[in-house]
Design a protein around this nucleic acid. Sequence first.
DNA 1: TAGATTGTTAATCGATTAACAATC
DNA 2: TAGATTGTTAATCGATTAACAATC
Lengths: 285, 285
Amino acid sequence: MATGRPTHTADRGRPANRGRGIPEATVARLPLYLRALTALSERSVPTVSSEELASAAGVNSAKLRKDFSYLGSYGTRGVGYDVEYLVYQISRELGLTQDWPVVIVGIGNLGHALANYGGFASRGFRVAALLDADPAVVGTSAAGLPVRHMDELEDIVEDEQVSIGVITTPPGAAQQVCDRLVAAGVTSILNFAPTVLSVPDGVDVRKVDLSIELQILAFHEQRKAGEEAEQALAAPAAAKAAASSGPSSEPVVPAAADRPARTAAKLRRAAASGTDGDLPAVMPA
Amino acid sequence: MATGRPTHTADRGRPANRGRGIPEATVARLPLYLRALTALSERSVPTVSSEELASAAGVNSAKLRKDFSYLGSYGTRGVGYDVEYLVYQISRELGLTQDWPVVIVGIGNLGHALANYGGFASRGFRVAALLDADPAVVGTSAAGLPVRHMDELEDIVEDEQVSIGVITTPPGAAQQVCDRLVAAGVTSILNFAPTVLSVPDGVDVRKVDLSIELQILAFHEQRKAGEEAEQALAAPAAAKAAASSGPSSEPVVPAAADRPARTAAKLRRAAASGTDGDLPAVMPA
DNA sequence: TAGATTGTTAATCGATTAACAATC
DNA sequence: TAGATTGTTAATCGATTAACAATC
């Protein structure tokens, strides 16, 4: 495959960088832009600048323009982007102009929640079937659809041409369900079970993992606590230094000082944790 | 802040690269390693090599060793890593050795699912309260906890020293709920509503968005369809060429050929979509 | 034309990877 | 010691960002 990038031409509708082109990071942001554009479209806003749209999508405008440059030249200098046209182009790029039947396997709390999720149907995705292995659940209904038995998985995938499967089973069942989905012909899997799935080449897996997200937040939260503890310790000395060096417009203790309750909680945590170099409470056996 | 990296020392328990150190990409993988290590620990496996652990976590071993090098030198050359010790070190690094009270706001299907999520409690996270604005929901219970009214939010955050909030409200309510959480002292938010939240500096937001994940899968799925269509078109010619160039051990049409049903579905989709340069069905007004 | 805004460049930053010296 | 495996280096790759020429 050629690695040379084609020279850019500004003709509409002929993307500059098709083929192996669009970076993953850009693909991951296209849905954000699309959502912001859809909101503008509903308000009948005809055009939008990169600055406005970037702000609505929560990114900076340089990144947005770079992202769009991978799709082609869909803007007008001095004016901005045509909202409707961009909605269409991004939808097409993401494959949302076609119908994507999806099966959801595992109809517990989470499966129910997903079946009822509104944003599902709105963007080309259609719940083709809900499946569960539990006879007590099979035959009930969720979001107006009957829950069918796992035995029907292969037939449904074939009959409905399903290429996307959503796994919301308990972790122990996830790999087995994944294997059956893949064997039946599914090539994209969205996995909500906290398990690493192994799949053959050509099958995409994305995972959504509540526990991981919380742990990442906890990491940063702990770090904030540590920083505020340091600031609090440094504050008296700094205040003294500031007092002796005459009037200053800069506050001595920023941000943290005006949120006493929060800081108190964090100091307590910082003291309780091993953040500041305590000996580990557990050592290797 | 000093940018010079301290020289690495191999003493246990004194991480080489603390402070502004650990890259985000590494932080995001620590929970994966921890999960794999916990499983090994439950099986009483005493030590594990980077190769084995990487495989269990679904990454490559070079990446894993690089990741661990940011934490310190916790392995033993020629032997591997002590499972229990590493569980402790990663837990501590992530802040999981302390208690993290969490509030969940919005007790619909998804809120219920999260309240019942087992992985929640197991790793230092504790559901401090379930909150909802709907009087019909307030007073019911989920996962053994009563659903309380939004009015109690501020008191609960203060009393229970909550620093992490989970938003599972409809999108229209998310920003407002977020503002209240932040005003009450919450500094980390996990957002399941499909909305861009704006928060002041010092507050972390992570989002989980089903719709975005599906759209990313659809993008790749569409691309697969396009590629298989190209292969199918190229196949007859390639087969002819191969036939005339004598015996060969390489298959002419790889992968796609042995999954006829799937390929048929994709060819249909490729034909239906604008992938191959059809004129757009929608043009700007 | 003058003002506005895109699309592109180039510099910078951060993440990944393979290879291997250090060392258990 | 010989074999195994870590921790680190350095090369490479991909993503971000600011700046600005192109141009509407």
